[in-house]
Design a binder for these strands. Structure first.
Lengths: 138, 138
DNA sequence: ATTTTTTACTTGCAATTTGCAAGCATTATA
DNA sequence: TATAATGCTTGCAAATTGCAAGTAAAAAAT
């Protein structure tokens, strides 16, 4: 796992030190918007993350206190990854990426989600944050 | 300049295809919050971006229609980089990175800016977007 | 007029990171 | 007891990054 180095004291820069790559936020996305929680589920996403990259990023996110790793309730050979409060606080960032991509990129967004975000962003953010918190308790 | 490839149709993923690295958003930050506009000014930031990386990212951002490059008003040997509307729409993303970093990271944020963002996020976003638009006209 | 400086890059190369394929270890199922 | 599921680890080539030096056009200084 690559070690984290802080490039400056700027909060945008330090956020990018942790989240600034092509894969990390996709894991958080999968937890928040796709209800995923296991290594195998993350691997099945459309972007086809490599197994070593996934393992590296999960370890990094855990080390940063963004998610927790626990043995699954049903199987001892399975692990469940959930968001901490620090992770739940990433939801607003994801929402802004959704809105920017939907407006300016060649993307397909669930129309229900998009409408929800465009008509009441704060309420939608709060809703998905609460859903993530509730899953973290199971 | 590395070519852009779209990994999926997810709007978060396509946004990360363009903005998901450690440097790109720092350039946008420097334009929006530090009033910078030239290659030399971007190089002077605290994070010390390498010259080849800066040149690559500026070309990529221009190719993506996020910023424009124009000969400076005072000198023919100088270029001025400004945000397009697509670039101005990145401001909300930057704001969420500021808030997340300020809350969870070891950072130093201008207290005035932080208070402004925490008390009236939407108004602050609109203000910095308008400032960027006005500079783009000069 | 000529040299020096400013400004914006480009180039070469070593080091790091990524991406792909295969292998391994533990637990669960047949 | 063998097979499958699950979560990784390893090896290696390819791509990207980071550092230092070099280049080219325009501006300023002499």
């Amino acid at each position: 796992m690559k070690e984290l180095k802080q490039r400056s004291t700027c909060s945008i820069s330090t956020s990018l030190d942790v989240l600034g790559d092509k894969w990390t936020l996709l894991i958080v996305r999968d937890i928040v918007f796709a209800g995923k929680s296991t290594y195998g589920q993350f691997l099945q996403s459309a972007e086809k993350m490599a197994t070593n990259i996934l393992a590296d990023r999960l370890a990094l996110l855990e080390a940063q206190g963004i998610l927790t790793k626990a043995v699954a309730a049903d199987k001892k050979s399975k692990f469940t990854y959930r968001l901490t409060e620090k992770g739940v606080d990433i939801v607003p960032i994801l929402v802004e990426f959704i809105l920017w991509g939907a407006k300016h990129g060649p993307t397909i967004v669930d129309p229900g989600l998009l409408a929800e975000l465009q008509t009441g962003k704060e309420a939608a953010v709060a809703k998905y944050q609460q859903l993530a918190r509730e899953k973290a308790l199971t």
